[in-house]
Design a protein around this nucleic acid. Structure first.
Length: 592
RNA sequence: GGUCCCGUAGCUCAAUGGAUAGAGCAACUGCCUUCUAAGCAGUAGGUUACUGGUUCGACCCCAGUCGGGAUCACCA
């Protein structure tokens, strides 16, 4: 709306003009909030509106037609109705994200985007699913605006946790593998992690029975000592242990890959902790030489961040081994080396807010100029209606089970429908997954990521109302109209834009107005790292279309101009629904 | 205890410091002989946790109180 300000010197003198969408209950499309400017000008809002009344008619489009049809002051608000020529012009400009007006200041960036990053001792669960969907949606949103986005994850493949699974497999696995046992690889390895914990707890109980304290028992349990020995042998490169480690991890990766594919997400590069932790150690050594860190009497290395309002943090243990944050330092530098990124985004749950403050502070202390361009995309935990997920109580929602559930529900709905009886079994399965995933993805993405949320299975599986399938359904109805139109008239009116039609009704105009929200919604989502703005757009457009569909016949419309106009509205609505769903990683089936 | 986050309809969530705080679910009314009823139209549901402050204007900003969560490991 820059052209308003450019038109008038004295309007330029009024700072901080606030524009907003006119609320539906008032006439007009765009509203100028007059309170602030009125105060600056020493006028009452009504007086200011009066002074402005001569101004609006002077605004013209390039072809000389008027821009503002009517300006109506209501209290401190000035509601402007824009002319049909404006909307027609706006529509003719198209709604593409990467072209068109206002792009002068846009600079494409190289963005490293980390998400998922699971441990390799357990299958993925609901929390990972929120993480994955957020990361995937941000990838799609940032890419759609023209950025180069590199999707990465860090694989925590090293450490005591994986040794526990390895040891339990040696003891209880009876030489079986996922294939022979008929279990998905990540679940298979997860089972042995649980087996380990069980055996460990049994041994602790026994030791406590023999008179040890719980702390002593937890330190002395033979199976834990064995696991620690295994970790040492791994660090020394013992071929047998390393071979087993590779085997276990490959089973996990196979399992993860199946889950990722079904969920529809992927990565451009994996960073393995086992490959970057040494790099982290050398960074710490360098900082030590530069006097940025200090070594205490026991030999442990610390960084003091009290000058930045943070505490001291250990970087290397007294035995010289690295801790969690050490590998993050190394991985970060490796990524800057690999991609020379402008920005790096870490999609990690908000329980690690402090960890990332510390990480970025250390990177800054080490003198990396890009440290300030690292960002923690922090998201809230997913709770169940009865509270937090707890593995001990068996309430963890498994990602694969979750997808089965949503697919089965959608399949049941399809089976009772009489619309799609001609589809094959495979086609129905694919469609059921697309619809089920739409429900799941939309449910998780429509919420502000920073907020803790509740996953209620009953609501998440809903296919009606404020849901993904609702939006898909609008798209399917549109597709159906467009297919029929095409078969009616293969080259004819389907390509006319209907722009000469002038008798728009309120419903048509409202639908057209929605289109203009597309780019602002995507830009807001990118700026705030919040895909819910895109979900909002999709839902709002679907709602506007449903009303239009109900009130305005398209194919039966006798007036050819009106029909062509409505068909053009349908084509645009269909495209934008599909694209907005696409940015959320949701399929847009043509029938359902 | 220190630090950080959160508290909006019965439930789940919206609302760049702006108009009468909006949706969906659940409840209740209507609408399929008409392009897909996974839809549309409507009714009902609120002291935005509480108390002050700033402002022409506060769910939003500030202070305090209460309630919930996270974090403060030589765990990852």
């Amino acid at each position: 709306m820059a052209w308003f300000a450019e038109q008038s010197e004295w309007m330029n003198a009024l700072p901080r003009l606030v524009w907003q969408e006119t609320r539906p209950e008032f006439e007009g499309e765009i509203t100028l909030v007059l309170f602030g400017p009125a105060k600056q000008a020493g006028l009452s809002p009504t007086d200011l509106a009066e002074r402005l009344s001569d101004f609006w008619p002077t605004l013209r489009l390039d072809d000389g037609s008027p821009l503002v049809q009517q300006a109506q002051a209501v209290g401190g608000f000035l509601n402007l109705s824009l002319t049909q020529p404006y909307w027609r012009w706006r529509w003719s400009q198209g709604y593409a994200l990467t072209h068109g007006t206002g792009d002068q200041e846009f600079k494409p960036e190289t963005i490293v985007l980390e998400y998922s990053s699971p441990n390799t001792n357990k299958p993925l669960h609901l929390g990972h699913v929120r993480n994955n969907l957020l990361g995937d949606a941000m990838y799609r949103i940032l890419s759609s605006l023209g950025h180069r986005v590199i999707r990465v994850q860090v694989i925590n493949d090293r450490g005591i946790h994986i040794c526990k699974s390895m040891l339990a497999w040696q003891k209880f696995g009876q030489g079986q593998d996922p294939r022979s046992a008929g279990v998905k690889g990540d679940h298979w390895v997860g089972q042995f992690y649980v087996e380990f914990e069980r055996a460990f707890q049994d041994q602790v109980q026994e030791l406590v029975g023999q008179g040890r304290t719980r702390d002593e028992a937890e330190n002395e349990a033979p199976i834990l000592i064995e696991a620690r020995e295994m970790l040492q042998r791994w660090e020394q490169g013992d071929p047998e242990v390393v071979g087993l480690w590779k085997q276990m991890n490959s089973w996990v990766y196979e399992g993860f890959e199946v889950t990722y594919q079904r969920l529809g997400i992927g990565f451009d590069r994996n960073y393995y902790e086992s490959e970057t932790y040494l790099l982290g150690k050398s960074l710490v050594e360098r900082g030590l030489q530069q006097g940025l860190f200090r070594r205490d009497e026991s030999g442990a290395v610390w960084v003091d961040l009290q000058d930045r309002g943070l505490d001291s943090k250990i970087l290397l243990r007294s035995d010289g081994t690295s801790v969690y944050i050490t590998q993050d330092l190394g991985t970060a530098e490796q990524r800057q080396h690999d991609w020379v990124f402008d920005r790096m985004i870490y999609t990690v749950a908000n329980e690690q807010d402090y960890h990332f403050k510390v990480l970025f502070a250390i990177l800054d202390k080490l003198g990396f100029p890009w440290a300030a361009r690292c960002y923690h995309l922090s998201y809230g935990m997913v709770d169940l209606p009865q509270g937090r997920m707890k593995s001990r109580e068996g309430t963890v929602v498994d990602a694969d089970d979750l997808m089965d559930e949503v697919q089965n529900l959608a399949a049941a709905k399809l089976a009772e429908s009489e619309k799609l009886t001609h589809l094959s079994g495979d086609q129905k399965n694919t469609l059921a997954l697309e619809i089920g995933l739409a429900a799941l993805k939309f449910y998780l993405l429509k919420v502000d990521p920073t907020k803790r949320m509740v996953y209620n299975p009953v609501e998440a599986l809903d296919l009606q109302g404020h849901t993904g399938p609702f939006v898909q359904y609008a798209h399917a109805r549109l597709s159906s109209v467009l297919v029929r139109a095409l078969s009616e008239s293969p080259q004819g009116s389907t390509h006319a834009n209907g722009l000469s039609y002038e008798k728009w009704n309120a419903t048509e105009r409202f639908l057209l107005r929605q289109f203009s929200q597309w780019k602002p919604s995507v830009e807001a989502a990118a700026k705030e790292n919040n895909p819910s703005h895109v979900a909002d757009f999709a839902y709002g457009l679907a709602t506007a279309f449903n009303r239009f569909y109900h009130e305005c016949p398209v194919l039966q419309e006798p007036d050819p101009e009106a029909k062509a106009f409505r068909l053009a509205l349908c084509r645009q609505a269909c495209t934008l629904l599909k694209e907005s769903l696409g940015l959320l990683g949701i399929a847009a089936p043509e029938r359902m």
